[in-house]
Write a protein that binds this DNA or RNA. Structure first.
Length: 616
RNA sequence: GCCGACGUAGCUCAACGGUAGAGCAGCUGAUUCGUAAUCAGCAGGUUGCCGGUUCAAUCCCGGCCGUCGGCUCCA
């Protein structure tokens, strides 16, 4: 008896698309186990939808092969929300091609063709893919003696499976776009054409996903940056170089002020360093060996090579080294909003999130070895405090360990990894290990914040460095009167101000909380009879430090309200004859909520309270 | 950097091998208005840049710059 028949007898045939037997996911065409221990897998299960997506990829490949027999097939896995399949074709698919492929897929789904599985020897499998060099290459790399092949209609593919029993079980899907992708993800290989699609168990889920994509589009910081006049990039200035407009600059200034105040309070010394330095500095630091391809070209000055700085650390080290340091002086903490320049390939630039010039909220801490654990621990506290202030209280923590290409000794690496681990555990933060993802000079803790839509953004990083103190000979005089090597921590909390700002824009969908809003209050006269009083109100609010604008244009109230709302100003104060007579204002929140008229003092009180919050 | 798409007024977009049009924004005037767009008029463009084909290019071709979707990368 097959699982399919068993499913039928148990009334599960309609919903089951695969089964879990002894922990393994299997096709329903497989024999049912003697003892009958079976867990049915449906499209509603995480495993189930993954199978559906994978099968959808096969259906798509089947459609492509019918329409474009010359297309060479490669691989096609399921991914988050859907699937893709990579093809080697002479000319990439056009949007019209996608529509045709989608139609053909619908045909295959309607025909409800069975997915059949067969297991063959590797040698035999080779003969089954004539004219498919990629499949041959894949086969050559499989160590097993036998492989499984799946057929749907005329389309045969090398595949581990499992799959849905028939193409009719493929759910709701939509082809999204095409993209170039290197064979096996290696930029030295041929570029293939990838088709992305999304697939879900129900129309409702697909619609929800498309709605989410719409929402993401609406929140896109590049779009909002233009609409709200926050920043721009300019062809004549250069790709990846950000112009902060006045409104964006207000937000940045507030971010910076907050950052400086909190750092001064937390025992940091604030420093400044130049934008260029002799190339040799980065030879010593090791950056040249490891990251030359990410640095801008050097600048020759009077026979000496200078370099636009890609990092701030060597400068801070030199400040540290400018005099003898006692063990009593440590930890020394230097913090700087340091603007660095990195050559990012043109194709990777993306709004504020990936740029060529950016300002790191950088700091370098110089410690005695016995201070490492404690310092990392309090650093974690500090980091989470700062993130929380900006409205982020959900995050994932990663511990990245030694990469293939590294500097320093394995012993020091182990020590540093241990220190980071200990701090995380003491703090009770759940974390994941990212093996091999450390920086060349040391392991790190990365904190990825989650925004309102649940998307993750890498911002904070805490990196231990035994390497640079050695290269630059950063030392302190110990209690014993001899020289000891300092340990360094590199850390950034927001990461880059540009990037963090971009994330903030998307997090709040441009509707910044009161404390960050570029304009906090619009005061709107109903007619120009109230002009004088409104001018009064504006200057009262400004005197209290609130960013306030009066809208004296010759427009109707509805027009001014609409504009205020579109600019996402937290409060619009409506002022007509009634309010003026009572020396009041009528506040309207940006969401549309109308508050009862109140005195300016009352409104100020309310505003002060909200400016303390991060979420309004 | 690689593959593909795209680049038209400040913004969003339309049109075309014979030197371009709408809405919004802007300016001028009228209107003095109560919680998401008052009306009318005016003005606005070397169609990203450079070169080629053509009697003629914004349109076709090539190069460059930039943007977008991915891939690779991301100290």
């Amino acid at each position: 008896m097959t699982l399919q028949e068993l499913a039928k007898s148990r009334g599960k045939a309609k919903v089951a698309i695969a089964a879990r037997v002894d922990g393994a996911l299997v096709d329903l065409s497989r024999p049912a186990p003697e003892n009958g221990e079976v867990a049915w897998v449906t499209p509603a299960d995480p495993d189930g939808i993954e199978i559906v997506r994978h099968s959808t990829a096969h259906v798509m490949a089947a459609a492509v092969k019918e329409l474009f027999p010359d297309a060479r097939i490669t691989i096609g896995p399921s991914i988050e929300n859907g699937f893709y399949y990579d093809f080697d074709v002479e000319s990439p698919f056009t949007p019209e091609d996608l529509a045709r492929i989608e139609e053909k897929m619908a045909e295959i789904v309607r025909a409800d063709l069975p997915f059949t599985r067969e297991v063959v020897g590797k040698e035999e499998a080779r003969g089954r893919f004539p004219g498919e060099p990629y499949k041959e290459e894949l086969l050559a790399d499989i160590p097993d003696e036998t492989v499984s092949l799946y057929r749907v209609g005329n389309f045969l593919d090398l595949c581990r499976g499992p799959h849905v029993p028939s193409s009719g079980k493929v759910g709701v899907f939509k082809l999204m776009n095409t993209a170039g992708a290197y064979w096996r993800g290696d930029s030295k290989n041929r570029m293939l054409t990838r088709i992305y699609g999304c697939a879900f168990a129900s129309k409702k889920e697909l619609d929800a996903h498309l709605a989410l994509l719409e929402e993401i589009k609406k929140r896109d910081h590049r779009r909002l940056g233009k609409e709200l006049d926050l920043f721009s990039v300019n062809d004549d200035i250069g790709a990846g170089l950000i112009l902060w407009h006045p409104k964006g600059s207000v937000v940045r200034r507030i971010m910076e002020d907050f950052w400086r105040n909190e750092h001064a309070r937390a025992g940091y010394d604030l420093v400044f360093s130049p934008h260029i330095a002799k190339l040799d500095l980065w030879r010593v630091s090791g950056h040249l060996d490891y990251y030359r391809q990410s640095m801008f070209g050097s600048i020759e000055v009077e026979g000496q090579d200078y370099q636009l700085k890609p990092m701030n650390c060597p400068f801070h080290i030199q400040i540290y080294k400018s005099k003898l340091r006692s063990y009593r002086d440590l930890p020394v903490r230097y913090a700087e909003l340091g603007t660095v320049y990195r050559y990012e390939p043109s194709g990777t630039l993306h709004g504020l999130l990936r740029v060529r010039g950016f300002t790191q909220d950088d700091a370098h801490l110089f410690l005695r070895p016995d201070q490492l654990d404690e310092e990392i621990f309090s650093l974690l506290d500090f980091t989470l405090f700062v993130l929380q202030r900006f409205g982020f209280d959900r995050y994932d923590v990663f511990l990245s360990t030694r990469p293939e290409k590294y500097a320093g000794t394995p012993e020091n690496w182990a020590k540093a990894e241990e220190a980071l681990k200990k701090a995380l555990e003491r703090k009770g933060l759940p974390y994941e290990v990212d093996p091999g993802e450390g920086v060349f000079y040391g392991p790190k803790i990365d904190i990825k914040i989650k925004d309102m839509l649940g998307r993750s953004w890498q911002c904070s990083t805490i990196q231990v460095d035994f390497n640079n103190p050695e290269r630059f000979d950063a030392v302190f005089t110990g209690e014993d009167g001899t020289s000891h090597r300092a340990i360094m921590i590199h850390r950034a909390l927001m990461g880059s101000l540009e990037r963090f700002f971009g994330v903030l824009v998307e997090h709040y969908a441009g509707a910044f909380p009161v404390w960050l809003a570029p304009v906090q209050v619009d005061v709107l006269p109903v007619t120009d009879r109230q002009s004088d009083y409104v001018r009064d109100v504006v200057s009262r609010l400004r005197a209290e430090g609130f960013r306030t604008e009066g809208d004296f244009r010759n427009e109707k109230l509805g027009y001014k309200i609409r504009e205020s709302q579109l600019r996402k100003v937290p409060y619009a104060l409506v002022v007509g004859d009634r309010e003026e007579a009572q020396r009041q204002v009528a506040p309207r929140k940006r969401g549309g909520e109308q508050l009862p008229p109140m005195s300016i003092e009352e409104f100020l009180e309310k505003l002060r309270g909200e400016a303390e919050q991060t979420t309004h």
